[in-house]
Design a binder for these strands. Structure first.
Lengths: 206, 206
DNA sequence: AATTAATTTAACCATATGGTCAAAAATACA
DNA sequence: TGTATTTTTGACCATATGGTTAAATTAATT
């Protein structure tokens, strides 16, 4: 008689996942060896194969999770029952918070998507991304005269750009503007929430 | 008697450089093998070593060139003797044009800088980057009351973000918003010049 | 034409990699 | 306690990689 398995992933399994995430995020799939992951997890190399079969499978697991956390956030807020302006504020606030805790997330996704665009194909269908929703909401605000006439797609991309870019370009910006001082850069990022919000609100005043 | 050498790089050498640029940009240094570069250049693998000794040396050459073209552009425009608003317009216009012809440029730099931040150290000194200049110019505009009070650093980063992000995230955006239709995306990017300019000008109206 | 120098090629090397496998160790089960 | 099952380990394999070297080919020089 077989008991209910998988009641919880074994500790080693989770250690591997965490180590893999850490390494993949920084160095990409090509820049990360299984040995490297094993070392980071303080386990034997073969265990990685024991739990995840192949590097590709392990990578996919990490990638899908990362990708989901990257886009589901926005989807979530868009569906909330609050004013348009509040939505903008919350998207900015929560997106920046997410990225503060996952600095490498956007760069990771972008690199891997560039390296192998096919990966997206399957993923986007599963993820069921519907940008139309946010686009429509913006259009409605324009019709109501609440904001000036802007292309909703451009506007949406602008919001994303302003939030995400400082993290993607962090090594550069931190060094150039803050003498590579991490704390100061993070303070700057926090200020940014207010700054971006004002910037955007001002830019769409009708 | 030795003649003046290096009158011009040999054709093979340039073929290698071009192929290396192409491959490195897309797949990074780890994701690109010398064989891959040789194949792309249609030459024997050993020739790569003959002309550039090591992969790292070849990579550095490509990286430095890419990095320079990436930042010198802005520096250049900042020093022109035109109005502040014109500068903004020109930075946007010419930056987007640069990226249109070098789609992979920003992603490439960001990935490699993340993977090996030390690379920046030596480079930034050589490049002699002085962000203070643009920062000062923005401050002056604020003092003159020409634009509203904004943090110059945030403002500068905003301009960069709005220009660069659509290229970094291109595989994603192109797929989600344009059914992966390249032409339509490029049309969109062109529209963007005007769109961003308006967006920014509007956002700093005093 | 003969010689010298530069370019190209193929064979080779050491190493690192992803992955397999069978034995050992630990755990669960009866 | 003894057996079956799961987890861990180390040895091993085929392959790809960056790089070297010496020979072959081509171009330049006299």
């Amino acid at each position: 008689m077989v008991k209910y398995k998988e009641k919880s992933a074994s500790e080693t399994e989770e250690r591997i996942l965490e180590a893999a995430k850490h390494e993949f995020m920084r160095f990409g799939i090509e820049g990360t060896s299984i040995q490297q992951i094993a070392d980071a997890a303080c386990i034997n190399k073969s265990l990685v194969h024991y739990y995840f079969r192949t590097k590709e499978k392990l990578f996919k697991r990490i990638f899908i999770e990362a990708f989901s956390s990257f886009i589901s956030h926005v989807e979530d807020i868009i569906n909330r029952d609050i004013s348009f302006q509040k939505k903008i504020e919350q998207i900015i606030e929560s997106y920046i918070d997410l990225l503060k805790n996952n600095s490498y997330l956007p760069g990771f996704i972008i690199h891997e998507v560039n390296r192998n665009p096919d990966r997206l194909f399957e993923l986007i269908q599963n993820a069921n991304i519907k940008p139309q929703k946010i686009i429509n909401q913006i259009s409605i605000e324009i019709e109501k005269g609440k904001i000036r006439k802007v292309d909703p797609r451009h506007f949406f991309i602008n919001v994303l750009a302003l939030c995400i870019f400082p993290f993607i370009a962090r090594p550069l910006l931190q060094r150039i503007f803050f003498n590579n001082n991490e704390k100061n850069y993070m303070k700057f990022i926090d200020e940014r929430k207010k700054e971006i919000t004002e910037f955007i609100i001002q830019s769409i005043k009708s």
